[in-house]
Design a protein around this nucleic acid. Structure first.
Lengths: 209, 209
DNA sequence: CCAGTTACGCTACGGGTCGTAGCGTAAGGA
DNA sequence: TCCTTACGCTACGACCCGTAGCGTAACTGG
């Protein structure tokens, strides 16, 4: 799950401190909670982590990359429960996702890094790999389960199946994000139920269109 | 449409230059296109607008408020066409909204100011008043038209009708924003059609739940 | 045990932006 | 004409950035 070390470490010399890595990421999340995205500085994170500022720059190019990695691990918590029906599974994952977005670390960081990524291709790739794809996996997993249960038809064409999954993903993630971060209203069980009713009814129609 | 002058101007003294206002907002949009949100500075905007930096600070508290106002006017372009059916109207407004989000000014600015607003209540209110509510109006307008056409039932209870409208708004705006800014894929006519099919089918079910 | 190699902590630095204060001048109103 | 407010300009301390340089620490291969 932690394959974020593209340049493989050389076999010689002093190895990088893994403890420092975790301390820095933890300090980054703490700083996000206390200061928020805009007032978070590299110097502050270094101080909190008990590490020199230069050590941060040896591992991350800047604030953007650092925060993405610090927040990404939180998305590992997301998982699709097996509650017996597609409707129950969707509602549960919606509530999970909303709870994650309501945490102060993600709340302040997620939109900020996405905003930065609109002008930084490498950052967009990093976000996609470490955050977005982890959510998307849940959609694919949920569809597979629903098909096994007979709740959803198996789409014959590979292409349309893929674009449908993309559509569903944007609808679910987009709606929850918009509700929490833009409308700034909480996602409770009732909202999740209403949303799921809408989505599943639409899903049936979308498959046959 | 431009009621953004809470502190009403005093009856005496030199009046504020309306030309400078427009020059500053225009310069802000230009700077967003060239530099993006993170590299945009107050000094740069002042230089582009041909005004002193102090003049900016006399009117806006900072970068956040300035950019919100600069981008807000772009959302005035959004309007709900009357194409004869709810489906056609939704598709059209989705394409309009997507086109707006794909402009470099909004692309880089929108998520950034929303991110900032998570820690700034006043900024959140400003965004809501000058951006979000203008979109929400389209949803209410579209529902009213559809009810007049007989495409949608008139919901008896005022409360559930309101929460349903909120849900629809989060789904539409959220899905489009997520598609364009997170998934970073274009919203074409086909996507708009698929999305609308899903939404309208779900709408029927949501009303009766 | 001893070079060789890499990581780390620390200090210092030039460069940039912030937001404000102070001043003289410009543009309206009583 | 006085009064009031807006404007342009300069200057300033404060902060953060990202890097260079150096001595030290940790681990490896001979």
């Amino acid at each position: 799950m932690l394959s974020r070390s593209h340049p493989r470490p050389p076999r010689t010399g002093r190895p990088r401190s893994a403890a420092a890595d975790e301390a820095i990421l933890e300090a980054t999340r703490a700083s996000l909670v206390d200061l928020g995205w805009s007032k978070l500085t590299m110097g502050d994170v270094a101080t909190r982590a008990g590490v020199a500022k230069t050590t941060l720059y040896r591992r991350w190019a800047g604030k953007n990359e650092l925060v993405v990695d610090a927040v990404a691990v939180l998305f590992d918590e997301l998982e699709l429960p097996d509650l017996g029906s597609l409707s129950a599974d969707v509602q549960a994952v919606v509530l999970q996702f909303a709870a994650l977005l309501e945490r102060p670390e993600t709340r302040t960081a997620l939109m900020a890094v996405v905003a930065e990524s609109t002008r930084d291709e490498a950052l967009r790739t990093r976000i996609r790999d470490s955050i977005v794809d982890r959510q998307k996996r849940l959609v694919l997993q949920g569809r597979r389960r629903a098909q096994e249960r007979g709740e959803l038809p198996v789409e014959p064409d590979e292409g349309t199946a893929s674009t449908t999954a993309d559509l569903i993903f944007d609808v679910i993630a987009g709606a929850v994000v918009h509700r929490v971060l833009v409308s700034a209203e909480s996602v409770d069980a009732d909202w999740a139920r209403r949303f799921t009713v809408l989505l599943l009814a639409g899903l049936g129609a979308a498959a046959s269109a």
